[in-house]
Write a protein that binds this DNA or RNA. Structure first.
Length: 801
RNA sequence: GCCGGGAUGGCGGAAUUGGUAGACGCAAUAGACUCAAAAUCUAUCGAUCGCAAGGUCAUGAGGGUUCGAUUCCCUCUUCCGGCACCA
């Protein structure tokens, strides 16, 4: 009966099936199918010179398992891949080596492609995209022009975040703790004219529509925090001898009677407009200048000691109490949030309290419950010192007091418009010219793509201009409108541009007439399941939702949200528990593992190592366990007999395992799915014989995890067609439950023994059976049983006095 | 400071509508095979008391609810992530 099995040769088997899948176009997605579609997406990799990272392998394998399962469940699956190829590392490497970024990118993508193929991902390689390919960025530029035409892309002179090391302006999202997200250098402020995208116009929808999508809760929370929606009131203070008034935003209009001064941000325009009234303008001007010169890091890392200068001569009266209150300028008020001015209520706000203490300003308590001689009271309570509102609960009068004070209810967001200019070579040129007569003019579609000119030097400049500005031949051009003299925009787009719409291009990646055909978009979008890193939640994910909503408004895409479901993976840390990096020397190369133990072992290990959503430490030692598992499954072939009836236990366990794996994949609990299959393997090993059906059902549910070996076994057992399109095994509900139940017997809550009874036995039967047991009787010891707790098929507990 | 998520053997981790804590894997120890080693197989593998049967303790710390708590509640310690002068 024992079949002779060949040795498990991973290299031979894996190469064989990778070739087979490619030749048979096993994963090429077609639109004409009548099957239900499934669009699975991973964040496309940045093709760095370091090659594929084991972190890529983890997230790609997870989505690969899901996609392979979906195919077996009868879906028409699209699982595409491409390259997010524009970016600083390539440009820096080009500067260092003198090799053109295009050449480097080609070289790097070739390495990545080969590596990805060696791991057996079921990508549709025919739809590969590359954001730095002019055929691709033609459409990135075109979409930009749609924003421009609708006034959502605009130029603005402003203070920007400048990284002196990268020599590049940064979006607010790219500044972390006052440092450049990429290189860690302290960020400076510079005044520059920048292209902006008006993402704030979509703040409301970006926040509200989160309700309708299936994102992990923590992802929704992060996006919500980032958008920072805040309900409050706008109230105003008239200025004596001036047409102007100070408008403030507050979430606490209930504290209005407690206002003892008003503060303007240093950037506030009103300060200059009131210049003639301000008697100490020199002092004020100096304060503003100092505040501007503070770098982001100084402004945030300072001890938060509040500073400010009174605008002497500016007279403001409290609208209700008619008391005269002073006006200050202070950098604790942010120019870009709310109205750039606040009403200060020291009794009920920590920051105002600190400021008032320092400058000896009055503190008026208007909500009872705290002790304002010690600290500000920010909780709710009963109104006092508030005229007709005295005695009422503060939370109930918000709207009423706003109206009484002549203000209105408003909504404010923390989100700011997206700084879209970068002063670098390796990005999409902004397809706009500056005409002496016509101003800013968009290129027309026939002039797209506006290709990056070939240059020898890519060095960014210290004066904050893009290297493209040095190529006068390219810069000087004709206005497409009037034919007159014009200059090209020399800034390029940020690397978030190409990734904001790549999932749309996958549906029709070769189209040269449109960014994608509407029918294809209608068939494939929205993306059904998108997995990626948490680090992209406030950048890429928010940006692409914004682009998508804009395209939807322009009737260019059929849905208003790009992704139905979004999950996130955890990082893989080096063996030392630190983030993997070249400088630490703790980087693991997947090629080595594929060569020595095989892609299937690597895939199994990466899925088995721990919970998918958590950061986890890599362990080269532990991979051997996954390899052993695979070999054990391989060797089970010896026990397979065509016409054999498995024992009830085996059937039971097989059905339970099918159910477990089916459910676990959906919940991304890959580690427990594999442990379930290991348990099944251990059990099958202890059998004399196993049926072909049982073995092959097992091979089917294992195939998304270890596709190469499973194809091989599938073929060994005489199957002519690929396992890829076999149907996913169904578990038999009736065979999920054993005929026997193990009952835990407790006395006073302590486990004393277990007994086996017929499943669904009644309390009477179980009790009788339990009381026959010596170990139980011993502990009851003739004491009186005062209570019995029984749970069917689980437990019987005797409580004795 | 605010919000969110954790803390379980030597290690990675299982198990929660409250019901046998430590599944599965790694490492380790002993044995089989071998001239030997590797690989493989078998057994043991939380702590502690005991010759054993068996007992007791144990899921970051302390308390509570319960017949029964890793799971629920309160207080605290600590780690990780996010936001942070957002009025």
């Amino acid at each position: 009966m024992k079949n002779k099995t060949t040795e498990y040769n991973h290299t031979k088997i894996e190469k064989k099936w990778q070739k087979f899948w490619e030749k048979n176009k096993s994963f090429v997605a077609k639109e004409d199918s009548k099957k239900k579609k499934f669009y699975g997406l991973i964040e496309f990799p940045y093709p760095s010179g370091d090659g594929l990272h084991i972190g890529h392998v983890r997230s790609n394998t997870a989505m690969d398992i899901i996609c392979r399962k979906r195919r077996m469940e009868g879906y028409n699956v699209l699982y595409p891949i491409g390259w997010d190829a524009f970016g600083l590392p390539t440009e820096n490497s080009a500067i260092k080596t003198g090799v053109h970024p295009t050449v480097l990118t080609k070289k790097n993508t070739n390495v990545f492609r080969k590596q990805l193929k060696s791991i057996g991902f079921s990508f549709d390689w025919t739809r590969e995209v590359n954001t730095s390919d002019p055929k691709y960025y033609k459409w990135t530029q075109w979409i930009f022009l749609q924003f421009f035409k609708k006034g959502l892309a605009y130029k603005k002179r402003m203070l920007i975040n400048w990284c002196p090391k990268c020599k590049i302006g940064l979006a607010n999202e790219e500044v972390v703790d006052g440092k450049c997200e990429r290189c860690g250098a302290p960020v400076e402020k510079r005044e520059k004219e920048q292209w902006m995208l008006a993402i704030t116009k979509y703040a409301d929808r970006l926040e509200k529509d989160l309700e309708g999508v299936n994102y992990l809760e923590k992802i929704k929370t992060q996006q919500k925090n980032w958008i920072g929606k805040s309900q409050g009131s706008e109230l105003w203070f008239n200025i004596a001898n001036s047409e102007e008034k100070i408008i403030v935003f507050t979430t606490r209009p209930d504290t209005f009677y407690g206002v003892t001064y008003v503060v303007l941000a240093p950037e506030h325009q009103l300060i200059n407009q009131l210049k003639s009234q301000i008697t100490n303008f020199t002092e004020v001007e100096k304060y503003i200048k100092d505040a501007k010169n503070k770098s982001e890091i100084e402004r945030t890392s300072e001890t938060k000691e509040k500073t400010g200068v009174e605008l002497k001569g500016v007279i403001v009266k409290h609208p209700i109490t008619k008391e005269i209150i002073p006006v200050y300028v202070s950098d604790y008020v942010l120019g870009h949030y709310g109205t750039g001015a606040v009403m200060a209520v020291p009794a009920h706000d920590d920051r105002d309290y600190a400021f008032a203490k320092k400058y000896n300003l009055p503190i008026i308590e208007v909500i009872s419950g705290g002790d304002i001689s010690k600290q500000a009271y920010i909780e709710d309570g009963i109104m006092i010192n508030s005229g007709k509102f005295d005695g009422r609960k503060n939370t109930e009068i918000v709207k009423e007091i706003t109206e009484y004070a002549g203000g209105k209810m408003v909504t404010t967001y923390k989100l700011r418009d997206w700084i879209f200019s970068r002063q670098h070579y390796w990005g999409e040129p902004i397809p706009v010219v500056n005409c002496e007569k016509c101003g800013l003019v968009a290129l027309s579609l026939k002039d797209l793509p506006l290709k990056l000119p070939m240059v020898k030097k890519y060095q960014p400049t210290d004066n904050g201009e893009s290297p493209l500005a040095l190529i006068t031949k390219w810069v000087n051009t004709k206005c497409p409108n009037c034919g007159g003299k014009a200059k090209r925009e020399t800034d390029t787009m940020p690397n978030w541009a190409g990734s904001s719409w790549y999932y749309l291009r996958y549906t029709d990646s070769k189209n040269n007439k449109e960014f994608a055909d509407m029918d294809k978009l209608k068939y494939w979008t929205p993306v059904d399941w998108y997995n990626g890193g948490m680090e992209h939640v406030t950048l890429h994910l928010l940006y692409s939702r914004f682009w998508h909503k804009f395209l939807f408004d322009e009737k260019l895409v059929p849905t208003d949200e790009p992704y139905l479901k979004r999950t996130a993976h955890g990082f893989i840390l080096g063996e030392d528990g630190e983030k993997m990096s070249k400088s630490r020397g703790n980087v693991i190369n997947p090629d080595e593992v594929v060569k020595n133990l095989g892609a299937d072992s690597l895939r199994i290990y990466e899925m088995f190592m721990g919970p998918f959503d958590q950061a986890i430490t890599w362990s080269t030692d532990n991979i051997i366990g996954s390899r052993r598992f695979i070999e054990r499954v391989w060797k089970l072939q010896e026990k397979v007999v065509s016409n054999y009836s498995d024992s009830e236990n085996v059937i039971l366990l097989l059905n339970q395992t099918i159910k477990k794996v089916t459910d676990d994949i959906e919940n991304m609990n890959f580690n427990t799915a594999i442990s379930g299959m290991m348990i099944l393997t251990n059990s099958l090993e202890s059998q004399e014989k196993i049926s072909k059906k049982t073995y092959l059902d097992f091979i089917k549910i294992l195939s998304p995890f270890a596709p190469h070996m499973c194809e091989e076994i599938w073929q060994i057992f005489g199957n002519k067609k690929t396992i890829v399109l076999e149907s996913w095994p169904k578990f038999d509900e009736t065979k999920l439950i054993s005929s026997k139940a193990k009952i835990v017997v407790q006395v006073n809550g302590k486990v004393r023994t277990t007994i086996e009874v017929q499943v669904d036995s009644t309390q009477d039967i179980v009790e009788k059976e339990a009381l026959k047991n010596e170990a139980v009787v011993k502990w009851i010891d003739n004491k009186k049983i005062v209570k019995r707790i029984f749970i069917k098929n689980k437990i019987i507990n005797f409580v004795v006095a």
